[in-house]
């Protein structure tokens, strides 16, 4: 793909064919995000249970498979409490702001060769741009809830997200450099079916940096500082009740899927795989990464805030820059 070929897709002159694809895609994505978040919550609790040698959810449905649905019903049924002294509008805007952009981030992800919603030349850019919304939501939530713990959580969230976006971007950029494209579909197609043909073989450092930053961006342990419950009670969502909290929860899991999908597309060959390529490979890889994320969460203690920033500015950023330089030099040669 040549960047010079790129023209902005004008929504008013789209063909009916594309419109249908968009509508169907969005609906499917909504279903997909909802279903996957539900499954992920269940999987997470099962993983936690097995790691801690207990059964995890067990009572609702066979093997507790309906537990998340029961929890969701409970959350929806709960009273929404707006704390005294808070900015009610912003307070309830925050979870929505956190949750909605996630849909947009799903649009350019190539699930399969023909299974995608939008094929954009700047797919990577689109995802990264909308990922920035997440931090806005955390900031709003923490600030508007008139809670000191929330405020500290929000401050942490901003410092963390802003910091970690840079090495993340640089790591992604290295891959885009080597493919000369920001189109996820093109990047996937240029990789082969076998692991040694994937980008992770040529860019292991970029993958490592990307994964660490992705953990930090999604506020997952060991980088879950904005909501560090042993320090800040629950950080930015201390004051949220019912579905307000539920939406943050949902957004967290949706974000996890996004970052893992992107990692799959960029580094792990996307839907390409041995034997027959297809969406199942994609999902398999995404779920593999998600499991690793969960595994890490239930193994490690939380890092301290200054150490978190030190790791970013003193290690990841220089490494990512060096990696990018090396990639550029190698490409030139």
């Amino acid at each position: 793909m040549n960047i010079s070929n790129w023209t902005a897709p004008d929504p008013f002159v789209t063909t009916p064919d594309m419109l249908i694809r968009l509508v169907v895609g969005l609906l499917a994505l909504a279903a997909f995000v909802g279903a996957n978040a539900t499954i992920l919550v269940y999987v997470e609790r099962k993983v936690a249970g097995f790691i801690q040698r207990r059964p995890g959810p067990f009572e609702v449905g066979p093997q507790g498979i309906l537990q998340t649905i029961a929890d969701a019903a409970k959350l929806i049924g709960k009273q929404l409490v707006t704390p005294r002294g808070s900015d009610g509008f912003l307070f309830w805007l925050a979870p929505i702001v956190g949750f909605l952009p996630v849909f947009v981030m799903f649009l350019p992800i190539p699930w399969g060769e023909s299974t995608y919603v939008v094929q954009s030349d700047v797919g990577v850019l689109l995802i990264l741009a909308f990922a920035g919304f997440g931090v806005l939501s955390l900031c709003l939530a923490g600030w508007a809830s008139a809670s000191k713990w929330g405020l500290i959580g929000a401050a942490r969230a901003v410092a963390q997200s802003v910091g970690y976006e840079i090495p993340l971007l640089l790591a992604v950029l290295a891959v885009c450099f080597s493919h000369g494209s920001m189109d996820l579909m093109a990047i996937v197609k240029e990789q082969g079916g076998w692991p040694w043909q994937w980008n992770v073989a040529t860019q292991p450092l970029a993958f490592f940096i990307y994964f660490v930053c992705a953990l930090a961006e999604t506020n997952r342990a060991p980088f879950d500082l904005p909501e560090a419950e042993s320090e800040l009670t629950a950080g930015f969502h201390t004051e949220y009740s019912g579905m307000g909290f539920g939406l943050f929860f949902l957004a967290e899991y949706a974000n996890m899927i996004v970052v893992c999908s992107m990692a799959t597309a960029l580094f792990l060959g996307g839907f390409q795989g041995p034997a027959a390529p297809g969406p199942w490979w994609f999902l398999l890889k995404v779920y593999g990464l998600l499991l690793v994320m969960m595994w890490m969460r239930w193994t490690y203690p939380r890092v301290r805030f200054d150490q978190l920033l030190n790791l970013n500015w003193k290690w990841l950023l220089p490494l990512a820059t060096l990696n990018l330089l090396a990639t550029a030099v190698a490409l030139k040669l």
Partner: peptide, 27 residues
């Protein structure tokens, strides 16, 4: 840093092993 990374991987190994073992709680 490499030593630290190694310790992290060892930790993952332990929880991974425990993952495979049967539960200990009384149901």
């Amino acid at each position: 840093a490499l030593k630290g990374l190694k310790s992290l991987i060892v930790g993952l190994g332990i929880t991974g092993k425990e993952f495979a073992k049967p539960g200990v709680t009384v149901h």
